[in-house]
């Protein structure tokens, strides 16, 4: 499972990087979404892989090492997901405004001579 997850994070990250290097603004927003998946997963796995051990403390069982997943990365990722939504929205609005104002969807607001 570690291998699958690590490879997948790598693939998501690579796709995201490829996209944010493209010149069209919509490509960049899709790239940002993919990047945020990759980064969130990456943050998440710093708590290691734990199956069927959600971080719910219980009164009956005292703390045992390895019985629960690490809650800290989870909390960090949770806020990261929500903030990610807000920044995507912001980027989307900037993208639309830029397209309306400049008449092009190039990220720099103007077409370069030798561009795709």
């Amino acid at each position: 499972m570690e291998l699958i997850l690590a490879t997948s994070i790598g693939i998501l990250f690579a796709s995201g990087i490829w996209l944010i290097l493209r010149p069209r603004s919509f490509q960049v927003i899709i790239g940002l979404l993919l990047l945020s998946y990759a980064v969130n997963l990456f943050l998440f796995i710093t708590g290691k892989i734990q199956v069927n051990r959600p971080a719910f403390a219980s009164e009956a069982v005292s703390f045992i090492e390895g019985l629960y997943a690490d809650p800290l990365p989870q909390a960090l990722v949770l806020t990261a997901i929500v903030i990610g939504f807000a920044t995507s929205a912001l980027y989307l609005v900037v993208l639309l405004g830029s397209r309306g104002l400049t008449g092009t969807d190039h990220v720099d607001g103007k077409e370069l001579e030798h561009d795709e």
Binding site: E2, L3, L5, A6, T7, I9, G10, I11, L12, F13, A14, S15, I17, W18, L21, R22, A38, F42, I45, T46, K48, I49, E65, G66
Partner: peptide, 24 residues
């Protein structure tokens, strides 16, 4: 760009794997 993207992805994958394989 493709080379950059693939190397960045590989790097992150390797780091992720190392993190996952580290003892708790």
């Amino acid at each position: 760009d493709l080379i950059i993207a693939i190397s960045a992805g590989t790097a992150l994958a390797v780091i992720s794997y190392i993190i996952l394989r580290q003892p708790d």
